[in-house]
Amino acid sequence: MAGEPRVDCLFCKIVANEVPATVVRETDTVVAFRDINPQAPTHVLVIPKAHYRDALDLAAGAPELAADVLRVAGEVAAQESVTDPGYRIVFNTGAGAGQTVFHVHAHILGGRGLEWPPG
Score class of each variant (00 low, 15 high):
residue 4 E to I: 12
residue 4 E to Y: 04
residue 6 R to K: 14
residue 8 D to M: 00
residue 9 C to P: 01
residue 11 F to E: 01
residue 11 F to K: 05
residue 14 I to Y: 03
residue 14 I to V: 10
residue 16 A to H: 09
residue 16 A to F: 12
residue 16 A to I: 01
residue 17 N to V: 07
residue 18 E to P: 04
residue 18 E to I: 01
residue 19 V to K: 10
residue 20 P to S: 08
residue 22 T to F: 08
residue 24 V to L: 00
residue 24 V to A: 09
residue 24 V to I: 03
residue 25 R to L: 12
residue 26 E to N: 14
residue 27 T to W: 13
residue 27 T to R: 02
residue 28 D to Q: 13
residue 28 D to L: 00
residue 29 T to N: 13
residue 30 V to R: 04
residue 30 V to I: 15
residue 31 V to R: 05
residue 32 A to G: 07
residue 33 F to Q: 10
residue 34 R to Y: 01
residue 34 R to M: 13
residue 34 R to K: 13
residue 37 N to V: 12
residue 37 N to E: 14
residue 38 P to S: 11
residue 38 P to Y: 10
residue 39 Q to L: 14
residue 39 Q to C: 13
residue 39 Q to I: 06
residue 43 H to E: 03
residue 43 H to A: 05
residue 43 H to Y: 01
residue 44 V to Q: 07
residue 45 L to F: 13
residue 47 I to C: 01
residue 47 I to M: 01
residue 47 I to F: 08
residue 47 I to V: 14
residue 48 P to C: 05
residue 49 K to M: 08
residue 52 Y to W: 15
residue 52 Y to N: 10
residue 52 Y to Q: 09
residue 53 R to G: 02
residue 54 D to G: 06
residue 54 D to R: 04
residue 55 A to V: 15
residue 56 L to S: 00
residue 58 L to Y: 12
residue 58 L to T: 00
residue 59 A to N: 07
residue 59 A to P: 03
residue 59 A to L: 12
residue 60 A to K: 14
residue 60 A to P: 03
residue 61 G to K: 02
residue 62 A to L: 02
residue 62 A to C: 05
residue 62 A to T: 05
residue 63 P to Y: 11
residue 64 E to A: 12
residue 66 A to G: 11
residue 66 A to Q: 11
residue 66 A to F: 09
residue 66 A to N: 07
residue 66 A to H: 08
residue 67 A to R: 09
residue 68 D to W: 05
residue 69 V to M: 03
residue 69 V to G: 11
residue 70 L to V: 07
residue 70 L to E: 10
residue 70 L to D: 02
residue 70 L to I: 03
residue 70 L to K: 02
residue 72 V to P: 03
residue 73 A to P: 00
residue 74 G to E: 04
residue 76 V to L: 07
residue 77 A to Y: 00
residue 78 A to V: 08
residue 79 Q to V: 04
residue 80 E to R: 06
residue 80 E to I: 06
residue 82 V to C: 14
residue 82 V to K: 06
residue 82 V to S: 13
residue 84 D to W: 03
residue 85 P to H: 04
residue 85 P to T: 06
residue 87 Y to F: 11
residue 90 V to K: 10
residue 90 V to T: 15
residue 91 F to Y: 15
residue 93 T to I: 15
residue 95 A to Y: 10
residue 95 A to N: 10
residue 97 A to R: 11
residue 98 G to N: 05
residue 98 G to A: 13
residue 98 G to Y: 09
residue 99 Q to A: 13
residue 100 T to P: 04
residue 104 V to T: 05
residue 104 V to A: 08
residue 105 H to W: 14
residue 106 A to W: 07
residue 108 I to W: 14
residue 111 G to W: 13
residue 113 G to Q: 05
residue 113 G to T: 00
residue 113 G to S: 09
residue 114 L to K: 02
residue 114 L to Q: 00
residue 115 E to G: 09
residue 115 E to V: 00
residue 116 W to S: 09
residue 118 P to L: 13
residue 119 G to F: 06
residue 119 G to V: 08
residue 119 G to Q: 10
